[in-house]
Amino acid sequence: MDTNTKDTVIDVNNVEFLYEETDTAQVLKGITLNVRRGEFLAVLGHNGSGKSTLAKHLNAILVPQTGNVTVEGFDTADENLLYKIRQRVGMVFQNPDNQLVATIVEEDVAFAPENLGVPQAEIKKRVEYALDAVNMTEYKEHAPHMLSGGQKQRIAIAGILAMKPDVLVMDEPTAMLDPVGRREIMETVKKLNREENMTVVMITHFMEEAAEADRVIVMDHGKSIMEGAPKEVFSRVEELKKIGLDVPQTTELCFLLKKSGLDFDANILTIDECVNKVMSVYNSKGGATND
């Protein structure tokens, strides 16, 4: 993909950050990366790798102490641009219960556009659009606290969509959800990315989720240490394990079989790829039972 400025929505340039001057270690140590228009970018890293701190830099909740971050060319350090930046980059956090403010779903979704001074008729349209995009229209008159975790998180996403942002940043949005809730969020995010062309940045430590992204950045000790398509990144099994991360079971299986001296590679990601690979090795050794 082209990396010139036209395609870059967010540019993070050599950012350093520490919370308190007395902190012994910096949280971000000169990280540089960009977010490209229309992509689904996953940021992987263990607890304490700096990934949430990075996320907060993407819409000026935090501003860099050294280096700079620009959103559509706007510098996040310029306080006058704060509204412009936050309208363009919306953030969803881990705990859905901390993000819902109203007692009725549609009022909750309308909260941000109301604060932005959007006219009433337009708000109505946006709320309808946002609830439809996360597949929650039938719950518009429900009370948020009666919904499941996955549904609540989808309402939080709808609340961001109603601002019509350019980028959706999500900081471990599935960490507190069950498998069904996690699936709901992943389906929603992928649909938004594909059908609505929404740029998505997803911070996670679930490698299954990162495996579904277009591009993965791996963070460790406040730096980006790997970057590439999920296939390339996950094939580096030993390096990932060394920094406390996992790879999909399929990748690990092929990696172990390779180590056992069989004709395998660790660039296997999906179940289909893994099954096909085993079958092709099996057939090439004359073990085929069918033609």
């Binding site: 079971q249 179940i271 099954v275 085993v278 079958m279 099996y282 069918n290």
Partner: peptide
């Protein structure tokens, strides 16, 4: 995931 892989392999005649 690994159980899914094994059942798919079994279906494929492995």
């Amino acid at each position: 995931q690994i159980t899914e892989v094994c059942s798919r392999l079994s279906e494929a005649g492995f």
